[in-house]
Structures are given as C-alpha cells and as structure tokens.
Nucleic acid binder design. Structure first.
Length: 548
RNA sequence: GCGGGAGUAGCUCAGUGGUAGAGCACCACGUUGCCAACGUGGAUGUCGCGGGUUCGAACCCCGUCUCCCGCUCCA
C-alpha cells in the first residue's frame, strides 16, 4: 500500500517534470538525481523559504518567541573542496576512509582495523583438525579474549574442555597488522577454514579527487561530506568582518557528497545532496536553552509549510545514542510513504555539539571517546592530526569573558525536505466532471509558498478577445515577479486538472463576462471554489493569498 | 556486497521464437464552453545495453547497467 503510493509519486514526478534519474539515456547512475522544470522550482522554493525564514527576514533586535535573547543571523557560501586537513581534524577522514575486507564464505564485510585475532596452533591428538601451521584466528565478539578462544575451538574441532591445548603465539592484535603474505592464514569470523578474506580494499565514503595536474597521491582532496566544516573554519572570518556578537548563527546552503553504499528510496539517500545548515554559536551557560529553542523552531518550520502532525515527529535521541560531548540531539523525522507504517526518515538533525568542532580546528583531531575531550595521539604520542593552531575563542567585551563558544547545529537535507513536501502534497481525491459525475483527480496540495507555479491564466475559449485579455492578466502577474503560466489548449476542465497535478494553487479564467463586468474567476485548487475578482485587483489578490 | 523480482511509446502495461501493441498522455484542425477521457487526423520505440544460440530473438542463454524488495552497510 505504502509502496504503491510511492510508485505513483515517482511516476508523477517523472511525467510532470519534477525528478529524473541522472544520466537516464545512458542507463542512469546510482545515487544521483536530476530535477526537472517543476522540481527545480519546488526545490528552489524550499531553499528560499528556509533562507528567508532563517536569515533575511530575521529581526536581530527582537527575541523571537521561545528564544532566550535576540540574536544575529548571517550566511556564507564556502567551497566544496577544502584543505584536506579540515577533514582530518573534523574526524571525517578517519571515519569515512576505511580499509575493508570481505569474507568470501560468509559474504560479510569488515573494517580491516576492527577484526581482532591471535595466532594459534594445535597439535593435540583429539582435535578433529589439528594443525602445526600457524593460523590467525579472528573474532568480532564484544569480548575478543573469549571470542577468539571460542573461534579457535571451532577451527580445530576441539571440545570446550580442551581449550588449554591450543598453543597461542603472541597476544591479541588487529587484522591490519598482518602482512599480505600472512592474510591467507587468517580464519574469518564464523568460518572454519583459513583463506576466505579478500585483500583489503580502500573504502571511501568521501569522494576523492585530485587537485593539481600531476595527480599524485599527495594531491588527493575530497568533496565535502557536509557543509558544516566550511562554517567552522570561517568562524574567525565571520566574527572579524560582520560585527556579529554572540549569540549568533551562520547559515549555509550547498551540495555535499557521500559515497553511500546503498543509495535507495528515490532521492532520500543520494550520493550528491544539498544541505541547509546553521551553526549557532552561543555561551556554554545558555547552550541548553538555545538547543531547545532551535529544536522546537525547526520542527515548527516544517509544520508551517504543510507537513502534517501525524506524519512528522520530533525524536529526541536517548542518552546512549549521544556522543558524550553532546548534551542533546533531536531529529525531525517524516513518515515517508516508502517506509513501513510507524517508521520515519530523518529530515533534519538538531545537535548540541558543545565546543567539539571549534576545538578540533584549533587543537587538532580530538579523541571522541575521551572525556573530557583530549587530542587523539598516534603511536609515537604525537597529535594524530594537527589543528590550525589559530585562536577560535571568543572575547565578550561587555563581560570581559573569553570562552570557546558552544554550537547548536540544525542540519537539514534540502532534497529530503523537498521529497517530504512532495509526498505530503500528493493526493488522489474526487472531483465532478462536466456531467456532474465524480472522477478521480490527482492533486499536489503544496503550500502556496512552495508551489512551482503560483497561478495559471486561461481564456475560457480561444476567441472573442478572451486570449488577449488573458495575456494581459498573465503579463501583469509576470511583471509582479510571480511564476505563472498561460494556456488556451483544450477544455477548461482539463486545464484545471493539469494544473492540479503540478500543484498550482490558483487558476484565473477570463470568460465572456469579463469584457462587460471587468472581472475574472479565481479557482482554488483545494476547495474548487470560484470567486470573481476585478481584473485590476487580480495581481494584488494573488499576492495577498500568497502571504497567507 | 549478497539473495529475490523487474526493465517494451512520455506514463501504466499486454505481448513466451515468425511484420511492434493497447489505454491514457502529446500535437494539429473542428466542436462544446467553468472542472479531464467529443470528432477527424498525426507523431512517438535500435523492446535497458553488449554478446551468443537460431533461417529468424522483445521472447532462449551469458554478461552488464539501472530500479524495487529483503539482508549487509551507513546516520
């Protein structure tokens, strides 16, 4: 049922020009999508609503409802490719850049450095498969000491009571310490025979590229996996150039790239996607209030633009889901039709990130597991990834207080929001045909702010001066900056239905009476109601309705 | 990455070895004139892509790409 509806949304999206598969004529390309003429308008409207509501319409002299104080909001647009050190300090390089091995027998995939194991032999007589050849016995058990013994018993075919007959050679190590010559002697977890591991392969969740024409490995750079770091590394620039005072937010809209293993569910998980992110910098003492404020405000934003209460939830992460340096994270989630009933997909995450990000770029990559946070060190005791060494603390000249700001991060997916608005808008209802019989009607009930086309202008028939009068109305609306269309093709009812399918909120029809009474009909997409409006007031009327 | 299903006109799909089809959508003209499916005419496909078997392949076989579902992975 749910999937059925999603299929209908996917085919409508293609048929009416919302979304296409990328490079479709060449068979497509997994995880990449193109927006068509309607889709690009919808997505732009989503982004513009966000930018306007968060930045340009923000009043920095008045505390919005629910906010602890008034605050500043500014925007930036930072580059997609950045100094690779940014990703090393942020933690993305280590997190997104793994060597993986596959097991040919169990078809499981492991991180090379997370498989633990120990060299062993067993020449004991009652073993089913004694071996005087050293085997590297591996385990993924939570307790590797126990796990590796259990695995070895299985490999050698020994009863549990003979565990002491296994001869161990050295202590527990990780698989990545083995040379390529030794790897064939490793026994994969849940397997009885050695040699089922593939050679380790580089597994990049970040897209790698080359900067500089020679293209050696030293020139490797990455497409950003998130827009946030562009804001953090510009924290000082923004402070120095824009007279913002803490608390303030810096916003950015832009493309990010992740080499997802399983792109799926239409545009929900794509390899190229667009984010709308705010990093809100505040004093540590008030950070909890600001976290609550942004969480609730961002939730309300989706509601105001039409996502209904039943399909939208705010999910606070449990304590055990949080990084220890975060004192709160909440996801705004939507019940996408491709998900089973009762499941939700993330639209936006609002995270309290403490001072983790600014400190990372000052001091170097922090060990996420350390508490309090300390620098992550390499085997020689040096910083694993060196920070910028620049001072990213903030000096409040009123309170004479110097501190590292805490960060609240509302991070939204523009494509996910666009998809949610599209799914929410999709309805099949009933409307009468010209004989008064009910027929099914497909209609996209977009919030007028989001609708790709704001109004359509029709002459009732294409003669008696109606097309000319209609074109005058059309041009007035265009002059006012509204995205409107004109059509004189086919029966009037058909033209209404065509606009319903792309979610145009209003249709304006010039009829036989217009010439005498100077008025036109404005038809509402959702109620199907029609009211007569003087021609001279049509543009103002549409603008008034757009403002709500 | 693994397993299952699928890919034929813009959309939804029929077609199981012998001339490529339907409905809707689209275009032109006419008619009606405020809620799609009126009349006449028209355009539309290397049947996902590549290879093989065959006198002959949309159909059988192999490979490959993409989509959907379930695992796996991932926030």
């Amino acid at each position: 049922m749910a999937t059925k509806k999603m299929d209908d949304i996917v085919s409508l999206s293609k048929r009416r020009g919302f979304l296409f598969q990328s490079s479709e004529i060449y068979g497509g390309f997994q995880g990449f999508w193109d927006y068509g003429p309607m889709g690009v308008e919808l997505k732009r409207n989503v982004k513009e609503a966000w930018w306007r509501d968060m930045i340009t319409a923000h009043d920095e002299f008045t505390a919005p409802a629910g906010a602890p104080t008034s605050f500043n909001m500014v925007g930036v647009e930072t580059s997609i490719i950045m100094n690779p050190q940014v990703w090393k300090c942020s933690g993305h390089y280590d997190l997104f850049h793994d060597m993986m091995v596959d097991c040919k027998a169990t078809k499981k995939r492991y991180r090379f450095d997370q498989v633990r194991g120990r060299w062993a032999t067993c020449t004991y007589g009652s073993a089913d498969k004694p071996s005087d050849e050293k085997l590297y016995i591996t385990t993924m058990a939570e307790d590797p000491e126990e796990g590796v013994v259990a695995a070895a018993l299985g490999v050698f075919g020994l009863k549990k009571k003979y565990a002491d007959k296994i001869e161990w050679h050295g202590g527990l190590t990780t698989l990545d310490t083995l040379s390529s010559d030794d790897l064939p002697n490793a026994v994969a977890p849940d397997v009885q025979e050695p040699g089922t591991f593939t050679a380790p392969r580089e597994f990049n969740l970040m897209f790698k590229t080359i900067v500089g024409a020679l293209g050696t490995d030293d020139d490797a750079a990455f497409l950003r996996p998130e827009t946030a770091q562009g804001i953090f590394v510009n924290f000082k620039n923004v402070c120095d150039s824009s007279r913002v005072k803490i608390p303030f937010g810096v916003a950015q809209i832009g493309k990010s790239f992740r080499n997802e293993i399983t792109p799926r569910n239409f545009t929900f998980r794509s390899r190229e996607f667009e984010q709308m992110e705010i990093e809100f910098f505040c004093h540590p003492d008030s950070s909890q209030e600001w976290y609550s404020y942004w969480r609730d405000r961002r939730m309300a934003w989706y509601k105001d633009l039409g996502l209904s209460g039943d399909n939208l939830i705010l999910r606070e992460h449990h304590q055990d889901e949080l990084s220890h340096y975060s004192t709160g994270t909440a996801d705004v989630e939507y019940a996408f039709p491709f998900l089973p009933a009762g499941e939700y997909g993330e639209l936006e995450g609002v995270a309290h990130r403490g001072d983790f990000d600014l400190r990372s770029h000052m001091e170097g990559k922090l060990d996420e597991k350390s508490n309090p946070l300390t620098l992550q060190l390499d085997a020689d005791g040096n910083p694993k990834h060196k920070g910028s060494g620049k001072d990213l603390t903030y000096f409040d000249d009123q309170t004479r207080d110097r501190f590292t700001p805490h960060v609240i991060e509302p991070s939204a997916g523009a494509d996910r929001a666009t998809l949610a608005f599209l799914c929410e808008a999709y309805h099949v209802d009933e409307a009468p045909d010209d004989k008064g019989e009910m027929q099914s009607r497909t209609v996209l009930r977009f919030h007028p702010r989001l609708a790709p086309i704001k109004a359509a202008v029709f002459p009732l028939i294409k003669k008696e001066g109606m097309p000319e009068a209609a074109l005058d109305v059309y041009r007035d609306l265009k002059q006012a900056g509204l995205n409107v269309v004109y059509s004189q093709q086919g029966a009037i009812g058909r033209r209404y239905r065509q606009q319903d399918e792309i979610g145009t909120p209003w249709c304006i029809t010039i009829d036989g009476d217009t010439a005498t009474d100077g008025a036109v009909t404005v038809r509402d997409r959702d109620s199907l109601e029609q009211v007569r409006v003087p021609v001279k007031e049509v543009t103002a009327e549409i603008q008034r309705r757009l403002r709500g």
